[in-house]
């Protein structure tokens, strides 16, 4: 039992020792990801914006026929504020999951602290997300929504995003190495999560027990958090019970993930 509880600390320790390296690798990763395309890093921005435009058109114009704002805010602003964390999460789920498989040379040919590989992958995605967040802020100013003191809690949510995604990657990255099946599964699940999370639709549309099930999805914690920051103006500690639930869940995921990761760590070089 104690060994089980120790697992995450083994990984965390390895990460802390190698912090410098992890940062450098995250920059390299970013460079690599966007160096091949002519527009380079611009793609990281363009793609989500295209998606936002399409969703806005399909939902607001197509389905709702430009009806009243259910939320009290223009639909487009409500959509953007919720979908920004989703873009990061969905990209990072896959990107973190494939982190070990795609950095096979580090594992099979070099002596590299393996547990930092998911970390630098998630970190490199963070930069894109930060840029996206800043673009969103500027966009909101143009739309007449000016920054408030609540924007400061984005620091909290970004730290939470980073920790949560890194911890999730422990499980996914190790399993994806074991079998490609898990990679396909991960991609499918990510697709489904988009529709199961109240991003395009409002949580108030579901009631009772179903609402609790939907809220149990930790991704909604961020969707809600970003909307609270940009629109609703609510601090994360005002929702302390939901925050508590989120961190509890994160710890459980970390324990399971670290257990799986440590079990497989020594075999990774042999299977890749």
């Amino acid at each position: 039992m104690i060994r089980f509880l120790k697992n995450p600390f083994i990984l965390i320790k390895e990460n802390i020792v190698n912090t410098g390296r992890t940062f450098e690798m995250s920059f390299k990763e970013l460079e690599k990801r966007y160096s091949g395309a002519a527009l380079g890093a611009v793609w990281a921005m363009v793609k989500p914006m295209l998606f936002i435009a399409v969703y806005w058109f399909a939902i607001d114009v197509g389905i709702r026929g430009g009806g009243d704002d259910v939320t009290g805010y223009p639909f487009i602003l409500w959509l953007i504020s919720g979908i920004i964390p989703w873009f990061f999460i969905s990209e990072t789920l896959v990107y973190g999951g494939t982190s070990l498989r795609q950095n096979k040379h580090l594992i099979t040919k070099l002596v590299y602290p393996i547990s930092t590989i998911p970390t630098f992958r998630v970190l490199s995605q963070m930069y894109v997300h930060l840029a996206m967040t800043i673009v969103t802020m500027v966009l909101f100013i143009f739309a007449g929504v000016y920054p408030t003191v609540y924007y400061f809690q984005l620091i909290y949510y970004n730290v939470a995003l980073f920790i949560f995604m890194t911890v999730v990657s422990w499980t996914t990255s190790a399993l994806v190495v074991v079998s490609r099946d898990f990679e396909h599964l991960l991609k499918s699940v990510t697709q489904m999560l988009f529709w199961l999370t109240p991003i395009l639709w409002h949580l108030s549309n579901v009631k009772g027990f179903l609402k609790l099930v939907i809220m149990a999805n930790p991704i909604y914690y961020f969707v809600k958090g970003y909307r609270d920051t940009f629109l609703t103006q609510e601090w994360f500690f005002e929702n302390w019970h939901y925050s508590l639930y989120f961190w509890g869940l994160t710890i459980v995921i970390a324990l399971i993930g670290a257990f799986i990761f440590n079990k497989l760590k020594n075999e990774l070089a042999d299977i890749l």
């Binding site: 450098e24 390299k28 690599k32 091949g36 950095n103 040379h105 590299y112």
Partner: peptide, 19 residues
């Protein structure tokens, strides 16, 4: 020797140093 195929030769030299 653990090259990253997407990076250039020079970048790989530094990558190796890093690793």
């Amino acid at each position: 020797s653990g090259f990253d195929s997407e990076l250039t030769g020079i970048e790989n030299i530094y990558l190796k140093a890093l690793t």
